[in-house]
Amino acid sequence: MNNSRIWSIVIFAAAVLIFGLSWIIIGSQAGHNLTDAFLVTVAAFLTLSILSFLYKDNPYYKFAEHLFVGVSAAYWMSVGFWSTFVGNLLPRISPSLCTYFGVPYKGFDIFFFIPLILGVFLLMRLSSKMGWLSRWSLAFIVGTTAGLNLIRYLRSDFISQVSNTFVPLVTDWRGIGPFFSDFSLSITGQFAMSLSNWVIFVGVFCGLIYFFFSKEHKGAFGYASRMGIWVLMITFGASFGYTVMGRVSLLVGRLTFLFHDWLGLVK
């Protein structure tokens, strides 16, 4: 038996011992039953298994990863089945099945047989001879989504964004005198508001120029493109900071679980 195999067995035995003891200790505490204690111990084991990836890829991480795939696939399947199939489809096609599943019958609607048939067609993908039928179902989804997205993206991602970019570049203008007499650097002041609108207008314009690759980025076009990179860098920096903080807060959550819920070291 080589060294690494011995180490694997020792680590496995230590893990079984630690988590077994943890189960017994938590289960014996007041306010806990054995099932709860087992679930908390399993959650702690899985948390540590995933964290062990920081050292290197290992069997505990792989185990947790594969378990996650199976459990989450079945979870979403169950949720989908009960909320969509039983909740939306059956109440429109079958009173007897509604009674069986205990959901209210909403009246027969022959049109709901269409998605049922298309759904069955989709399952035909498993058959080598009838597999082509699944294309009809896919075509239904793809066609409807394409038509829906064409309008939705055109409206919300193009027209609304362009329209919102055309903002007043001098806000609340009451002449040069009041502008200097009321000059303020506060965020709600006229100067700050106008400056913000300038940054938005120029930033969008330069950002778009940066992404325009049909013309060489030289001369005035190049300057605008470089300005676009500046704006993009600020955005990437801000998004990065936001993501880091989000991830750190998740890590704090997991550590709180380990030290509070599992080990009980933090009150």
């Binding site: 940054v199 930033g203 969008v204 704006v231």
Partner: peptide, 25 residues
């Protein structure tokens, strides 16, 4: 930073994405 320069760059990206999505559709 989030409401002004970040918004400007994101808007430029979203406009590009929107045009791309429409073309794909």
């Amino acid at each position: 930073l989030l409401n002004v320069p970040n918004l400007a760059a994101k808007r430029a990206i979203i406009i590009g994405l929107g045009l791309g999505a429409v073309a794909t559709a």
